[in-house]
Design a protein around this nucleic acid. Structure first.
Length: 165
DNA sequence: GCCAACGTTGGC
DNA sequence: GCCAACGTTGGC
């Protein structure tokens, strides 16, 4: 039996002061809660599938960039933090009977030996189509192509900038 | 439906 | 801390 290959690849942003790759590694897996953007919700709720792989991106970091790999470890389900008045992500308009916000659980896969900074992503011609390098793009859950994912992973595992594997 | 005001994101 | 860019809200 070979392991099923992931059907989609993603980039998921988190501020390291809120939840870092080290936090995910320590936890093993964790609910990816707090997504409050309709476009990101659509990705989480619809095309995101168990086993999909994601680039774990540190935003508001020094430097910002891809620091690890995570795997989608659950189906999408309603995000309970949207219904919790004590939670920063509380949405008073959210209806428990018709959940508005969703989460998936993410599992730790790998911390990159050589984090790939946003500047490095921008410098790589092979990655010029990535959403994260586009000006003004702030979507917290983004699709990436298999080729982009493989390229970032190669860079992050220590491949030289001139390697094209 | 338009669009100004506001709040947030996130690089720098 | 600054501020550009974006998304949402709400008056009209």
């Amino acid at each position: 039996m070979s392991a099923p290959s992931p059907t989609n690849y993603w980039l998921m942003k988190s501020e390291p002061e809120a939840f870092s790759i080290d936090d995910l590694r320590a936890a093993g897996r964790a609910p990816w809660d707090g997504v409050r953007n309709y476009q990101a919700r659509k990705f989480i709720r619809d095309p995101m599938k168990l086993g999909d792989l994601a680039l774990f991106y540190h935003s508001n970091a020094s430097p910002p960039g891809v620091v690890g790999i995570a795997r989608v470890a659950s189906a999408a389900r309603p995000d309970p933090t949207a219904l919790d008045p004590k939670h920063a992500g509380f949405d008073p308009a959210s209806d428990p009977q018709a959940p508005r916000w969703f989460l998936v659980e993410m599992a730790f896969v790998e911390k990159l030996a050589a984090p790939v900074s946003l500047a490095a992503l921008k410098e790589d011609p092979a990655l010029k189509g990535m959403l994260v390098v586009q000006k003004g793009q702030r979507l917290s859950v983004q699709p990436v192509t298999a080729a982009e994912f493989a390229r970032v992973l190669a860079l992050g595992r220590g491949a030289t900038a001139s390697a094209t594997g």
